[in-house]
Amino acid sequence: MDHSNTSYAVEADHLVKAFGKERAVDGISLKVPKGVVYGFLGPNGAGKTTMIRMLATLLKPTEGQAKVMGYDLAKEADEVRQSISLTGQFASVDEEISGRENLIFIGRLVGFSRKEAKQRADELLAAFNLEDAAKRQVKKYSGGMRRRIDIAASIITSPELLFLDEPTTGLDPRSRNEVWTVIRALVKNGTTVFLTTQYLEEADQLADLIGVIDRGVLIAEGTSAELKSSIGVRSLIIEFEDERDLNKAESIFEGMFTQTPEVDRGRLSISVTMKDQSKAAKAIGELANHQIAVKDFSMQQPSLDDVFLTITGKPAKEKGGEANGE
């Protein structure tokens, strides 16, 4: 078998993981091409962590099968482990020992000699801007530093595929940007990244391909642009000078669109969602015909929030509490 032949980093075929009666992952099939960032997007408790844990050989699937870097998850677990690295949702380093010791420790485990492990540790500490904290216990690190040492430990051997489980949850914007920088640098060097996130913005920013998961089921998949256009909804927002114009516009638009326009009296604006963009020009033209002054208008791309809302019929953040055994 030539494993380098496959062009997919992950090929999952109907993976199921049941805990008792609950099916945390309920038949997910997906393909992740090599060299991309795959964003696994979903609310808390959707099954993201369970999926990652199965793909990283930590959980045995109840049903289904998968290939990771061309290796069969069930039969070639050791080969899979050779090609992947995992950064879990909670610190995947030993918090009781220092950052440098952690890196040397993992370095030794993956087969470096003592000297090489130390060299590699120092190299990574420098690259991740952690030199000053090298000798401190990890439990004394800030959230951002912890994430960085975590990812540094994951790339000691430059894995072909890196799993990141909610890499920026709980981080401040600056630390989050640092983590994003690291992820982008990894991808640039050919690593495939499979990350889970609850943040729509994160998936939008980083991921080449996004899978939307809800209650253990993959409900949509595609690039950020594809997902948005598959929803097909764009909003035309028109602002008016005064309420009189607003009211007139409201009556003109009545019956013109499939969806009833939303009127915001505070902002003196109307927003209309539409599938066909040419309708926007028609709407503006219609207003001009009636001599209604338009203060401003704009077309808005749907956000991933809209995507989630449209597919699941509810906002992304509504569901479940923290750590409910995902």
Partner: peptide, 25 residues
């Protein structure tokens, strides 16, 4: 974060051989 040292450190020329059971323990 310095991008040069970051990208350099990401590229690892060769993987070390697998650690022996004894050495891992």
């Amino acid at each position: 974060m310095e991008n040069n040292s970051l990208e350099k450190s990401i590229k690892l020329e060769k993987r070390p051989p697998k650690a022996s059971p004894m050495s891992a323990a």
